[in-house]
């Protein structure tokens, strides 16, 4: 099993567990993460000894069947849930021991999150949903508004600013959620099945937007069970039963024209 992932610092980490420093180019670095969900009678090992490194500017997808622990892993990395053991560095800072409040402060600037069910604040307008984290991060209402307007123009949401989430289509909601996640220009964008509740056209739109922000240097970590979505990333990590089963960089598309043609050859 290939547990070490692409980094080779594993040996050093075991030798001096507390003095190890994350590589400078790593946006996210996790070592030996473990999370067990305790049910009434059984304990489920959702994440087992996962090592993970995401460099700045990378677009990484975590793929696996449902129940493989993908979402749990993402929650651990975003501070929404705490690991039972293991260490996490975010943007060079050790974060696994942070209190909930410190995590909240960190998320404002460093981590944007997009969810499968959009999770917009139901009683706020699309505009308020996006401006809220900006205000939280200390922007003035005017700055927040300007920034939100930029994002809405780019995401084709101009005429939706005053609508409540209930009045928006799924695709629109997810674009608003994307705007909200990006409004503070976070170092890391986490996406948990962002297309899981969208039809194929909206899925394509969201993927295109992710690709666009990635092209501008946004670091993205995406969780999905959908291979089409995963294939839009540079690197796909296969999670199976809480463990990393494979970690592979995808080729540039030009590397496989014949194969594609082969797949498409119509019989007839």
């Amino acid at each position: 099993m290939n547990r070490s992932g692409p980094d080779t610092a594993g040996a050093a980490a075991t030798a001096h567990p507390d003095h190890v420093l994350p590589p400078a180019e790593a946006m996210l670095w996790a070592r030996d993460l473990v999370k067990v969900h305790h049910g009434a009678e059984t304990a489920t090992h959702a994440v087992r000894h996962v090592d993970l490194r995401v460099d700045r500017g990378e677009f990484v997808a975590i793929m696996g069947p449902s129940g493989a622990g993908k979402s749990t892993l993402l929650h651990l990395l975003g501070g929404l849930d705490r690991p039972d053991s293991g260490r996490i560095w975010l943007d060079g800072q050790r974060v696994d021991g942070l209190t909930e409040a410190r995590w909240s402060l960190l998320r404002r600037r460093t981590v944007g999150i997009v969810f499968q069910f959009f999770n917009l604040v139901t009683n706020m307008t699309a505009a308020d949903n996006v401006e809220l984290p900006a205000l939280l991060a200390g922007m003035s209402p005017k700055q927040a508004r300007t920034r939100r307007e930029e994002l809405f123009a780019e995401l084709d949401l101009d005429d939706r600013a005053g609508s409540t989430p209930a009045a928006l289509s799924g695709g629109e909601q997810q674009r608003v959620a994307l705007a909200r996640a990006l409004v503070n220009e976070p170092g890391l964008l986490l996406a948990d099945e962002p297309t899981g509740n969208l039809d194929s056209r909206n899925t394509r739109d969201v993927l295109r937007l992710l690709a666009r922000y990635h092209a501008r240097g946004q670091t993205i970590l995406l969780v999905t069970h959908d291979a089409r979505v995963a294939s839009s990333a540079d690197r796909v990590i296969s999670l199976y039963d809480g463990e990393i089963a494979d970690d592979s960089a995808l080729h540039a598309p030009s590397a496989s024209p014949t194969t594609v043609a082969d797949v498409l050859r119509l019989k007839g």
């Binding site: 291979a227 089409r228 592979s248 194969t259 797949v263």
Partner: peptide
């Protein structure tokens, strides 16, 4: 799987 993913990526570009 890597092969399939690469093909998938190619199809996406196409």
């Amino acid at each position: 799987r890597r092969h399939y993913l690469n093909v998938m990526r190619g199809l996406s570009r196409l």
